[in-house]
Nucleic acid binder design. Structure first.
Lengths: 216, 216
DNA sequence: CCAATAGTTGACCAAAAGGTCAACTTACAA
DNA sequence: TTGTAAGTTGACCTTTTGGTCAACTATTGG
């Protein structure tokens, strides 16, 4: 993430002045992620971001040339989080173990930090108007890595012969759903947030259905 | 759907003047659905909607008091489409047959008319700021109907004992994904739209994984 | 044919929003 | 201590936008 949010800014040569730049930058990004995920790009004003970050609007523009720049940086940040969740695919070669761990990580991610997922979803739904080439590249290379691993499982006869992309899509779709659609889930749960027990049940159910669905 | 989009308007007592009102109304709704799904509520201007519908802006406001009213009507329309897809649950009691048909209907719906799904997704992601009570009610009652049917399958031992809501969530999540995330799917498919064959493969894969995952 | 209702539309307005700027303050290296 | 770079900020500008309105035309029932 470092060096990213300074890309097109008047970045100082070396970091000085204690950590003012970094501290403010972080606050702005956090505020932006929250607001963009709640109200979308167009629904969020730079003024609101500034207020939430506790700074005057002009200060936000001092660190991020435009609203789009800021948005783009936040998106990049989010993708990195998911890439971490997927490191499991490299650490083990047992499909059941990997899938269980991955689904759990992804589901917990969805429950505890849904904001990023929502923001990403809205960007993708709208056809990636802001998402830049770099982000797309990162996405593709991450996808490739995971697909390769799934393919080896198929070659070894460990799992069903479905298209690896279809399988990954299903995992992605289902786990993201618990973040993106949390509002709908709440409506269909008597207007109550899922309890910890319900979350655990959801993780179990999703794991069971997917594992049962793809293992031989 | 009839009578809905006139709710808070100066509706004429009886329909006269050939079908001017209905024709214009339909055009506006179609334009609105397309634009809202591409750019969200805040990203779409009434002027754009008017242009796409081939009318002056003031005319749009003549039929729909506010942008929100229009948005709300379109949402309602979308939910109705999905309710139709789910009628299958009432027409057969064999889980394999029902699920196969439903998944296919939903997937084809996603491929051929992704706009509605996208608009719905954005609304839900943002916490349903416009969605009214009626829409929520319709959603809940539709959900209940489907859950009951799934529960009977469980009681009869025809499918695995997962929570019916978890199961429906997975079906929903996965099928909607092919509409909402079509842009991401394209990126991960060499930047090419899925071919008809690929769509068919996706439908097959999704059906197989879900059926294999939930049937005994 | 005519009055009344429905539909049309250009002009207009106030509010909001993204972004700029120049003056100002703070921090630090030497 | 002091010069310079970094950071701060209120005021301002321009554009966009949702919505209004009054004047106008078209349609239709009687």
């Amino acid at each position: 993430m470092t060096e990213l949010f300074m890309s097109d800014n008047k970045k100082p040569g070396t970091t000085r002045k204690s950590g003012i730049r970094e501290a403010n930058t972080r606050q702005i990004i956090a505020a932006a992620e929250a607001l963009f995920s709640e109200k979308g790009f167009n629904g969020t004003s730079t003024q609101e971001i500034a207020d939430r970050a506790g700074l005057p609007k002009a200060n936000v523009h001092y660190y991020f040339k435009t609203k789009q720049d800021l948005y783009s940086v936040v998106l990049q940040d989010i993708l990195q989080g998911w890439q971490k969740d997927a490191e499991i695919f490299q650490r083990s070669s047992d499909p059941e173990e990997v899938l269980r761990s991955y689904i759990r990580a992804k589901m917990e991610h969805s429950f505890t930090r849904p904001k990023g997922s929502k923001m990403w979803a809205m960007e993708v739904i709208q056809g990636g108007p802001v998402m830049g080439k770099e982000i797309r590249k990162a996405l593709v290379s991450w996808d490739d890595t995971v697909l390769q691993r799934i393919q080896t499982w198929i070659d070894e006869g460990k799992i069903q012969a479905v298209s690896p992309q279809s399988m990954l899509n299903m995992i992605w779709a289902t786990t993201q759903y618990y973040a993106d659609y949390d509002y709908q889930i709440r409506i269909l749960n008597d207007n109550k947030r899922l309890t910890v027990a319900q979350r655990e049940e959801a993780i179990e159910d999703v794991s069971r259905m997917i594992l049962h669905g793809v293992l031989q």
